Simulated scan of single mutants.
Amino acid sequence: MKVLLISSRADWGGGPEHVYQLVQNLPSQIVPYVACPLDDTPYAALFALKLGAHRVVHIPHRKFTLGALLHLLSFCRAERIELLHSHGAGGGGYSRLLSRLLRIPVVHTYHGIHVKSMRPVKKWLRVALEFILGKATTVGIAVSPSEAALIKKYNLIDADRISLIENGVVIPDESVVLSSSAPHRIIHITRFDPIKNTLFISDVLKSLQELGRNEEFVFELLGDGEERKRLHAALRLGGFDDQVVFHGFQKFPDSFFTGALCYFSCSLREGMPLSVLEAQAAGLPVVVSDVEGNNDLVNHETTGLLFSIDNADSAARQLCRLADNSLLASSCAERARANVETNHSVQKMAKCVALIYKKAML
């Protein structure tokens, strides 16, 4: 079966990594092709290296164009593509139209329903568009229970065509060694966009300062993006420059987990965050915002710690609790890793997706 996976991003992030995991782990009877921006790094090159350049086709970065649609149409016909699988809103615009033109099934993975903070008119238009595209979707995949609930809430696709396949990750053979003394390293992976809410870290440091404990912690930030300069400015203003280290994009972010106190996420919303899953798989405790996606993975005080996203003091106090209680840290880490081993292996995820492909072809 020839399947074209479509993503309008191939830069650093969970969505492109998810596609790459599928490319590497789908059963051998499935022949994957990928449509993505060829000038994005690092995943465009990784796709070409894994599949061969002839099985990777260009579309613009997070942009829909008629020219790209026609190019994909020609590519699909030439390669005799049998099924389409789009990822995220950008890829989904192409896939559902191609499905109608080619008369082949389409699977769509949402990777987050990001409409909550939109202005009313924009939100209505986005939901209406997804509702229309949903009518052309053979199967819609939600990556978390929270995402499935939002899909049903906004009626984006008929309920009987929604499948829940939770994200999976590669699970290391052994857990990492955790932090034992200050300064405690806190790992945060981000695209520095508004959804990831990385500016919140400045507020957390202010709260830690009010508790008299800010010098006990160092945030290590992996990634880059539009809000990095704003965070730099906020840190300088607060006098926190020495407590945040900017590492930029890293090919092996999990190499930073050893010796850390925890992984920290302050996202406003998620589908199911791969970075949190990867930290849990490595045996690193997580302290995360209590929002969709995050709270699908974290049961407070059992598999991690949750804090209210509008309360920096809450986040600061959870970090202090973890630093002060090594038993809490180790128990959360062990239970979270066990949960990932049982429910979130990349092999299980790929197997479930392959079954959806089979169902869609019927």
Results as ranks from 00 to 15, higher is better:
Leu4Cys: 00
Ala10Gly: 10
Gly14Phe: 12
Val23Cys: 14
Gln24Glu: 15
Asp39Cys: 08
Pro42Gln: 07
Tyr43Leu: 03
Phe47Cys: 07
His58Arg: 15
His58Ile: 05
Leu69Val: 00
Glu79Arg: 14
Leu84Trp: 00
His85Cys: 06
Ala89Ile: 05
Gly92Thr: 02
Arg96Asp: 05
Arg96Leu: 02
Ser99Tyr: 03
Ile104Asp: 03
Pro105Glu: 03
Val106Gln: 00
His111Ser: 10
Lys116Thr: 13
Ala128Asp: 04
Glu130Trp: 04
Ile132Gln: 09
Gly134Arg: 12
Ile141Ala: 11
Val143Asp: 04
Ser144Lys: 10
Ile151Val: 15
Ile157Trp: 09
Ile165Gly: 10
Glu166Ile: 08
Asp173Thr: 13
Ser175Asn: 01
Val176Ala: 08
Leu178Thr: 05
Asp193Phe: 01
Pro194Phe: 01
Thr198Tyr: 04
Ser207Pro: 12
Asp224Ile: 03
Glu226Gln: 12
Asp241Ser: 14
His247Ala: 15
Gly248Lys: 09
Lys251Ser: 13
Phe256Glu: 15
Gly271Ser: 09
Met272Pro: 07
Glu278Asp: 09
Leu284Gln: 07
Val286Ser: 14
Ser289Tyr: 01
Val291Phe: 10
Thr302Gly: 06
Ser308Asp: 12
Asp313Pro: 03
Ser314Asp: 14
Ser314Gln: 02
Arg321Ala: 14
Ala338His: 11
Ser345Pro: 01
Lys351Leu: 11
Val353Ile: 15
Ala354Ile: 00
Ala354His: 05
Leu355Tyr: 06
Lys359Ile: 05
Ala360Cys: 10
Leu362Ser: 14
